[in-house]
Simulated scan of single mutants.
Amino acid sequence: MVSCLPSRRIENEDFLDRFGDKVHEVVKMTGVRTRYWVEDGTTTSDLCAVAAECLLDRLGWERDSVDGIIFVSQTPDYRLPATSCVLQHRLGLRTGVLAFDVSLGCSGYPYGLWMAMMMVQTGAAKRILLAVGDTSSIMNDADDRGTALLFGDAGTVTAIEATVPDADPAWFILGTDGQGADNLIVPGGAFRKREATGRLEGHPLDKLFMDGGEVFNFTLKAVPSLIRDTMAAAGEGVEDYDMFLLHQANAFMIRHLAKKAKLPPEKVPINIDRYGNTSSATLPLLMTTDRADALTTGDCRVALFGFGVGYSWAAASMRIGPLRCCETISL
């Protein structure tokens, strides 16, 4: 797997003129100190294309050996066509491969893994590229410190193929509660007409709206049981895992969830301080930045947990590694 970050680094000091001392309050809660934003005109597919080119080169995969590409993002290039079709052509993959988009954010990576692995397991494909990422900075309301300081941009690509006939099974838990849809939403810009009333009064409808308190409450309610249920489904205990990878939504939240689930802190890496909340890309980015050495040199039991916008959640328990490629590059 390869993650691609924009080259434009945004420091907290860059927000002082706009938000003043409020910057320090947000940082205390979220833990974000730096993040990377795309330049005008750069999209998620640009980041994913660079990551894919690097990954294909590292693996030595011929373009015509790839059977499909899945693009998981809530910041596509267009309403239509699907960005996966754009990437298929841009990467020079053969005509006729399967390609489709999935509109998911925080839970997107485990969902994408589930779909890609099902395709490989059923024989529908032998090699899949899973492109996952978001450029949330484009959706940020510059006057909303709760989102402007929180989100970063990243694109990732994971290569999936069947190589070991007797590999350990992967376990997944996927779920949704659409009652929380309005608590993390871009209200306008698509086909449903919304008015800037109630909580949305004065808010630009084409920008991200987040009710941080409601999202926080959902997470504290849903994730501890998700962690327990995932380990129970896999028949594993905390001691059996090398790492627990949680969606990088908020540093305080991650530490609280780890403590509540009795997960050893050393097994719960955090990189939101350096990259911000990169939405669907947080889990693969966490692997390529903070666990690359372990994943390229050993066979690791990994649990992944994505949760947030939708509301949606997804978890996976699997063995990963040793990977032939696990790195982070810049655009």
Rank of each mutant, 00 (worst) to 15 (best):
E53M: 12
D14E: 12
K262V: 05
N217P: 00
S330A: 05
P204Q: 03
S84H: 00
E201D: 13
F307N: 00
C106F: 01
T328V: 02
G188H: 02
A196S: 09
P224H: 07
N183S: 08
D290M: 08
I173K: 10
F71M: 06
K259Y: 07
E236I: 13
V102R: 00
W171V: 07
T75F: 08
A294M: 07
I254H: 01
P269Y: 12
G68P: 05
G68N: 07
T44S: 14
W313E: 06
L87I: 00
R35F: 07
G321I: 07
G60W: 02
R228W: 10
R291T: 01
A124Y: 06
F307C: 01
I329C: 15
F151G: 00
V238R: 09
V223Y: 01
L295N: 04
I70W: 04
M119H: 06
A51Y: 00
G146W: 03
T34V: 00
G178A: 15
T230I: 02
E25W: 08
D57H: 08
M119A: 15
D141E: 09
R35E: 05
T278Y: 06
D46Y: 04
N271T: 14
W61C: 03
E236K: 11
W114D: 00
F15L: 11
S312Y: 01
T288F: 05
R199M: 07
C300I: 03
N250V: 08
T135E: 08
R79G: 10
V32P: 02
H24T: 10
A116N: 05
R145E: 14
A232S: 08
M231G: 05
E39F: 07
D134R: 06
G123A: 02
A292L: 12
R8D: 15
G155Q: 03
N217V: 10
R9Q: 11
G178V: 05
V268N: 14
T288Y: 02
V38R: 06
T296G: 12
V223C: 14
M115C: 03
D299C: 12
C54E: 15
L113F: 06
E266C: 05
V2W: 01
